[in-house]
Amino acid sequence: MSARFHETRWTLVSRSKGDDAVSRAALGELCEAYYAPVVAFLRRDGRTEDAARDLAHDFFARLLAGGMIAGADPMLGRFRTYLLMALKRFAADQRERANAAKRGGGRGHVAIGAETTEAGTGWQIADERAEAPDAAFDRQWAITVLARALATVEAELRGSGKGDHFDVLKPWLTGDAGTPSQAEAAGRLGMGEGALKVAIHRLRKRFRAAVKAEIAQTVSGEGSVEEEMAALIAALCGG
């Protein structure tokens, strides 16, 4: 991992500003990986699920076609912040265009109908706890990082024929609370409790390394991994 540290996907992209084929491939991989946060942002920004997916597609298409979004400098910081900045510009741009296309100018139209009492339609009282689009993006990002790390670990274990280890032991990844008893788990895996403890320990260790590796792919500056980790913790805490 350390050997590849300076050659993460994001450092490749940022160094070349997305001009060469290798870096464009790397950007493609990143975008593919972090599709979900982009959709989460657009959903929270007031679009329907379908519209959000559609726009996300357009966004990535433009990004990957080399039309880097002006004003977003990939040399600064992390992939996450870069992507968010680009996405915001893109979303604002899109809205402006959509509004300009309507005759009504900047005002939306609301139908005054009889069916407004149905859930999900009509006026809704603002939910103060609803996340801002940025927060939704960051939160989804953190979840994506975790999901990708989990997937990596799972794939590794399954690859080495220890798929059942993953299935049985994964509850211990989040600590000791609420997990089934270790004796039961040991029974299911057919190993002693001591061996189970070692296995849990290894799984945790592997997972941590995977999370860190995942994060490392999205940062360029040295010393950023733990900062990004902290930022993700903050994002998950709901700011």
């Binding site: 975790l146 600590g175 941590r208 998950l236």
Partner: peptide
């Protein structure tokens, strides 16, 4: 997810 990230 929170517990998972914390554990990480």
């Amino acid at each position: 997810p929170e517990a998972l990230l914390a554990a990480a």
